[in-house]
């Protein structure tokens, strides 16, 4: 089976700062991979490169054989890659239902004339969107809060709503940026189950940025470790835990300044 998402040697610099260098990853359909690294390692920059927010200076990104370089973010979403945001970016003033319905817009056909005249199956289409959004929200346990403004949801619910919204675009690849951030231990446990669940139900390929090692080590099959914009390790969770380069990146070395050598 060939790779679904191929990222080959991408990099980007901001001025003189090489934010990400020679990043490469290959994911087969159904993979669940973790992307970890210390703060400022360039993890979110990788997501921004993959989703077209930034254009890489070099390298190739391809999804299912289609090259994604140079495409606008909405085109990449249409091609089947969707994401959540580290600092939640919901449509705060809009209802929970509308947040998900907006993500369905991409798959609709009705143009302006059909919208104004409500002709050409527009009403049926609206109904289908609402139905689909309600189904998704029910899966995420938000079925009874559809009318609430998104900004009024508790933090954990907002994170889950972001995932629901990303799924409404019907992605093949889902990029999750710190989904467990700010969650309490119970919520984190539930999140692990949820990620496993949606992966199976929606046949997803997931790339996950996460600081919570409990979550990462538990659900990811493989892990890529970034530091200073470069990959320093790659492997199974067990391999990563023992990798000296990873330990060094996270904890520092014994001969770092300020640490006394015994």
């Amino acid at each position: 089976m060939s790779a679904l998402l191929t990222v080959d040697n991408i990099g980007i610099s901001f001025g003189g700062l090489k934010a990400v260098q020679a990043f490469a990853v290959e994911m087969r359909a159904g993979d669940l991979r973790g992307l970890i690294g210390p703060n400022g390692a360039g993890k979110t920059t990788v997501f921004n490169l993959l989703t077209g927010v930034y254009q890489p200076n070099q390298g190739i990104i391809s999804l299912g054989g289609r090259r994604l370089n140079g495409l606008a973010p909405h085109q990449i979403t249409a091609a089947g890659m969707s994401r959540t945001f580290q600092n939640i970016r919901l449509f705060g003033d809009l209802s929970v239902l509308d947040n998900v319905r907006i993500a369905c817009h991409l798959r609709t056909r009705s143009g302006l004339s059909a919208t104004i005249t409500r002709a050409g199956g527009q009403i049926g289409e609206e109904r289908a969107i609402t139905e689909r959004a309600m189904e998704l929200l029910a899966i995420f346990g938000l079925g009874d809060r559809v009318d609430e403004q998104a900004r009024n949801l508790p933090y954990g619910d907002q994170r889950r709503l972001e995932i629901a919204r990303a799924l409404a675009t019907f992605p093949k690849v889902l990029l999750l940026d710190e989904p467990a951030a700010g969650m309490n231990p119970q919520e984190k446990r539930a999140l692990r189950e949820l990620i496993r669940d949606i992966r199976r139900k929606f046949e997803l390929t997931i790339l996950l940025i996460e600081h919570d090692m409990g979550v990462v080590m538990d659900i990811c099959e493989r892990i890529t470790v970034l530091d200073y914009g470069q990959i320093i390790a790659e492997g199974t969770p067990a391999e990563i835990q023992k990798n000296p380069a990873v330990i060094e990146a996270y904890l520092g070395t014994a001969d770092a300044p300020g640490v006394r050598k015994e």
Binding site: V53, P73, I102, C104, H105, T115
Partner: peptide, 23 residues
């Protein structure tokens, strides 16, 4: 009340997220 209108509203709310959701 339509998908198109909600797409407009999403731009007001958060343009980056709107674009990322395929608008």
């Amino acid at each position: 009340q339509s998908s198109m209108g909600r797409a407009l509203l999403s731009i007001r709310e958060d343009e980056v997220a709107a674009e990322a959701m395929g608008v």
